[in-house]
Design a protein around this nucleic acid. Structure first.
Lengths: 138, 138
DNA sequence: GTTCCTGCAAAAGCTTTGCAGAAGA
DNA sequence: TCTTCTGCAAAGCTTTTGCAGGAAC
């Protein structure tokens, strides 16, 4: 994914979001760090570069992005929310042992129930959990 | 699903859970009320019958059931956890308008990624959201 | 008598809100 | 100048924890 400042500005403006410095950096961070970070992680990684950054701004900004469908919230971790740039359908696997979250691809066309045939479906989330290969080897 | 007291006792004993009155009633409630209730809902519905019931006990009991794989936590609601008796794979749809959660069936065999081939998968959760038919009609 | 279940109160942790000051156009 | 973005502090909520009393066998 391209993550240049100018490209990100366009994306934000396209959603009527003013491309402030903080917002651009948070978006860029998510685009470049696809490990489904928590608010805490984003904050800790950006605070060196933006010393005045507050967690409130991280929360506000992420909520703004989520409302505009630029970013998705993952509720795969029962404690903290995790954030991911919106992309095509992929599932998330969370290792119960190390906590790491892995992406995997699936064909979402097979995922539809007769029961939902008259429903308007906005989002499909697929969360697995178990033990990852690295932890199994230990 | 059978929900007689004796049957529930067997299920609990099978998992080495002492079948106390509270535990039996909470399990029975989940078996008979498959609307994915929150802790609050379970507590409010049982407090009339068990006046001394505390939310702590509801939390403790549900955590016990989840640990024994008798009950599943749904993180489909971003605010509160919802609980469902463990059954075969089915997905959950949450209406963004009315909040109602609907079950739907899917074939979980289509849901597997090459990326996870050496992983041990314990649970597969499928959460959709959007607008349900009832709300679309309004 | 011993185990452990139960429940009150307090604590913990994530997220939101109120509001004032700062930044930007 | 006027809008709105930002950040501190406090509040809100769900869930967990500590601990003492009580039930069950």
């Amino acid at each position: 994914m391209e993550a240049s400042v100018n490209y990100i500005k366009e994306i934000l403006l396209d959603k009527d979001i003013k491309p402030s410095h903080h917002r651009i950096r948070i978006f860029q961070f998510l685009a470049l760090n696809r490990y489904h970070p928590t608010v805490e992680m984003i904050y800790n990684d950006l605070i060196d570069e933006i010393p005045t950054l507050s967690k409130t701004t991280v929360y506000n900004t992420l909520n703004l992005f989520v409302a505009s469908n630029l970013v998705r919230v993952l509720n795969i971790d029962e404690v903290e929310a995790r954030y991911d740039i919106t992309t095509d359908n992929h599932g998330h696997f969370r290792c119960k042992s190390c906590g790491e979250i892995y992406d995997f691809e699936f064909d979402s066309n097979y995922l539809s129930g007769e029961e939902l045939k008259n429903f308007q479906i906005h989002e499909k989330n697929v969360y697995f959990n178990g033990i990852c290969f690295s932890c199994l080897k230990i």
